[in-house]
Design a protein around this nucleic acid. Structure first.
Lengths: 150, 150
DNA sequence: TTATCTGCAAAGAATTTGCGGGAGG
DNA sequence: CCTCCCGCAAATTCTTTGCAGATAA
């Protein structure tokens, strides 16, 4: 009923903790999110959700994502194209950022302790307590084959 | 005709360099951007532009901002509300980031050499050459008056 | 039961685009 | 003159919402 630390019921658990009704659509959406290895947008989520239950509407996916975001069950991301992306939120322990390949759109996650320390320091120096932040790096793969000059 | 390093004609200059026609709407929009001390969205820009020339349309502001962004004349920003913000781009010499007060929406610009070095290093370690990046910090002002414990 | 939740379709908000006339070089 | 550009309005895209019926607790 809770296979591993990343079981499907984690989100369900969070929902009841936060006093949310655990309905069928929410259960399905939670499962899809748990199984996602990428950063799907709402349409993509909806399409995956529909493979499990065709009756679930796009509006419900939107509503559920807003709800999940407010309760910190998922994290909303912005990769520069006009739509919101989502991924399961795991708290500070799984905190990371994204390196986006501007040619292919490929997303690489990374974490840097140095960066974590630095951003808190910067905020403090400006007189703020950091509550959130957005960081995305956009780049092109380094072409190792043409490393003659440069 | 070029009062100081920050004259209105800087953008005009960039336009001709890039082979863009310097039309009246673009001239006005360029001027508004040069004079802006903040990070206006398109509607705000349009409203300022209209104070100078009522005939300039919203569509033209949108088209011009896209053009200016593609040619690196302005930088597009995303502060988390659903709309694009713009500010004049000054190249690497005036590079900076934003600290946003989540209560008031106040934006403080900052620059950190340390951060600049770090982000390039991270990108390289991931096998990328950094071409762009987004960084915004969201925080609440530290209340110095209640500094008893902590 | 009863307050929530959901699907549907319509509404909204931000941004883009087709078109015919207009202006810069 | 001949493109490129503009204003206008309609179209797109992403997201939110009002409503009446369905459902979890």
């Amino acid at each position: 009923m809770m296979p591993d630390g990343r079981g499907e019921s984690r989100i369900s658990l969070l929902c009841s903790e936060k006093g949310l009704r655990m309905t069928e659509p929410r259960r399905v959406i939670a499962r899809v999110l748990s199984e996602a290895e990428d950063h799907p947008d709402v349409e993509e989520l909806h399409s995956r959700v529909r493979e499990i239950d065709r009756s679930i509407s796009l509006a419900t996916v939107y509503r559920t994502m807003n709800l999940f975001e407010e309760t910190s069950i998922v994290a909303k991301r912005d990769f520069g194209d006009g739509r919101a992306r989502y991924e399961e939120a795991w708290g500070d322990d799984n905190h990371h950022h994204h390196m986006i390949d501007v040619k292919t759109g490929k997303v690489t996650e990374f974490y840097s302790e140095e960066l974590e320390i630095l951003k808190v320091k910067i905020a403090n120096e400006l007189g703020y307590e950091l509550v959130d932040h957005h960081l995305e790096l956009f780049g092109v793969p380094i072409d190792r084959s043409s490393d003659k000059k440069r």
